[in-house]
Structures are given as structure tokens and as C-alpha cells.
């Protein structure tokens, strides 16, 4: 049953993205930015936590989940360290994923070359 919730939550978030791209002239880059910021704002308002509890990975793997981790990290750090925590908490909570994307991405880019498309 848990797997079904994950599937549905993840699926619905992606469909929202698809409709945004098809119906408006937003590029993938715009959609990614919009989703991260919305995820963070919804988390700040306390609205994203219930979605994560329902959909688990279905809510954390799509990009709003990245926003969720950022906002949650910031808010949790405030409780421990106050304002300083609020500034560094979000970056700290997501540092592993971002560092992996940057470093591994750099390595992949140095090894592989883009291929012609047909």
C-alpha cells in the first residue's frame, strides 16, 4: 500500500509539471525553479509535511522535495542555533545531494562528450 501512495504522489507532482510545460511557455529550467521554491514555501507554511507523510519518497524525490529539505533544514536549525541556523540550515541539510550532483556531474562531463542527435 505504501508503494501505491509513493507512486501516486510522485506521479501527480510530475503531471503538474507536465501541464505547466505544455500549457505555458515555461522551460524545464523555469519549472525546476518554480517547484523548488514552491516546495520550500509550502513547507514554511506547514503544508508540505502532510504530503511527505502520505507520499514519502513520492514527495521527497521530485523537486518540491528539494525545497522541502531546504526549508525544513532551515527551520530545524533555527530551533537549535537561532538566526545563524536559519541562514545555514537549508544549505547544510541539502549539502550532500548538491555536492554529489556537482562533483559527480563534473566528473561525468570530463569523461563523456555529447552525441549527435537524430
Amino acid at each position: 500500500m505504501e508503494y501505491l501512495y509513493v507512486f501516486i504522489t510522485g506521479g501527480i507532482i510530475c503531471v503538474i509539471g507536465q501541464l505547466l510545460m505544455d500549457a505555458t511557455k515555461l522551460t524545464p529550467a523555469h519549472v525546476l525553479v518554480l517547484f523548488v521554491v514552491s516546495g520550500a514555501v509550502l513547507t514554511g507554511l506547514g503544508l508540505y509535511q502532510p504530503i511527505v507523510e502520505f507520499g514519502n519518497s513520492g514527495a521527497t524525490i521530485p523537486l518540491p522535495g528539494f525545497g522541502y529539505s531546504l526549508a525544513k533544514g532551515a527551520m530545524e536549525a533555527v530551533q537549535k542555533e537561532g538566526l545563524l541556523g536559519g541562514i545555514k540550515g537549508g544549505v547544510e541539510a541539502t549539502a550532500a545531494g548538491v555536492a554529489a550532483a556537482v562533483v559527480f556531474g563534473y566528473a561525468v562531463a570530463l569523461i563523456f562528450s555529447p552525441k549527435s542527435k537524430s
Binding site: 522551460t27 524545464p28 555529447p114 552525441k115 549527435s116 542527435k117
Partner: peptide, 20 residues
């Protein structure tokens, strides 16, 4: 050339996207 125009005007070749 498809690959030079694509990267100057649109997206990188290996970027995942859909064309309308």
C-alpha cells in the same frame, strides 16, 4: 548544423526536454 544551433539557441544536446 543541428548541434551548433541547438546549443547556441536552445538547450544542451543531452538535456532532457520535450519539443512542442
Amino acid at each position: 548544423h543541428f548541434s551548433t544551433a541547438e546549443r547556441q539557441f536552445r538547450f544542451p544536446l543531452e538535456h532532457g526536454n520535450q519539443r512542442p
